[in-house]
């Protein structure tokens, strides 16, 4: 299965997504005669989209990333920069780096990515003056700003750091300023999902019904605000479609700090 191409049919070895219902989708590996295995959902697609756009990624971009982690952002980056770009990803943990490499091979994108197993804060990305964009998702991003700067192209590029804590962001911003980055900007993005429901509300009986049985005055005057009112409503209720927010939602993933390296 390739992550950079569509196929017409599902084949052995592919990962298929099984959709059971709303909020109930999971990947299944298509394998002959073996048990199916499930994996956890990929995180942060909302953050990934903002990162991709704000880093100005497009086909042909050269990107540096650390750490690789589960590789969900790596895959997103690879798919965006394919077919001519490249991702250099640095992961501190050896096992994770190996696992990521294995996954990239499996997804037929290994020609678009280089995985390095080293400490980005000490050893950098292993490239210099090459990258259009650098992304950091490490516990102490401020220690890697210098390496990020030297990895970026001479003519400049974009930088992004993802940190869950504001203290990390503060130190990162200070380091960015020290290294001459401009357009330093910290954002947070939240996804709000709405369930679409048909809702009926009862119309209170204020005694007017007796006078005007066929058409309650309340309902006609409010029709404009209420949106779509069902014609075949029960007496005394008003129906409408509504987007109902989830009872609980992700309230915080991390702060995204963006910056630009200008031509120096």
């Amino acid at each position: 299965m390739s992550f950079v191409e569509y196929g017409d049919t599902i084949q052995e070895g592919d990962t298929a997504i099984v959709f059971l219902g709303h909020e109930s989708m999971f990947p299944v590996k298509v394998q002959h005669g073996s048990k199916t295995q499930t994996k956890t959902q990929i995180l942060y697609s909302t953050d990934i989209s903002l990162i991709t756009m704000m880093l100005e990624l497009k086909p042909g971009s050269i990107v540096c990333e650390s750490g690789t982690g589960s590789g969900s952002l790596s895959h997103a980056i690879i798919r965006t920069v394919a077919p001519t770009g490249h991702l250099y990803t640095v992961e501190f943990h050896q096992q994770r780096a190996e696992k990521a490499m294995e996954e990239f091979r499996e997804h037929k994108v290994e020609h678009l990515v280089t995985v390095k197993n080293q400490d980005v804060c000490k050893n950098g990305f292993g490239v210099s003056n090459m990258a259009d964009a650098v992304f950091l998702d490490i516990p102490s991003p401020w220690e890697a700003i210098g390496h990020a700067k030297s990895a970026l192209k001479v003519e400049g590029g974009r930088f992004c750091s993802f940190s869950p804590c504001i203290e990390q962001v503060q130190r990162t911003c200070l380091a960015l300023e020290e290294h001459g980055f401009t357009e330093i900007n910290t954002l947070e993005i939240l996804l709000r999902v709405y369930n679409v429901r048909t809702i009926s509300l009862q119309i209170p009986d204020l005694g007017k019904a007796a006078e005007d049985n066929s058409n309650p005055g309340f309902d006609s005057s409010n029709q404009a605000n209420q949106g779509v009112m069902c014609g075949s409503q029960q007496q005394g209720t008003a129906q409408f479609k509504s987007g109902v927010p989830l009872r609980e939602m992700v309230g915080h993933t991390g702060y995204l700090t963006f910056a630009t390296k200008s031509l120096s």
Partner: peptide, 15 residues
């Protein structure tokens, strides 16, 4: 399938 109605909130920070 997987119809989803959503909206994003965007917050800028003073750091």
């Amino acid at each position: 399938i997987n119809l989803k109605l959503s909206e994003t909130w965007l917050r800028n920070y003073q750091v």
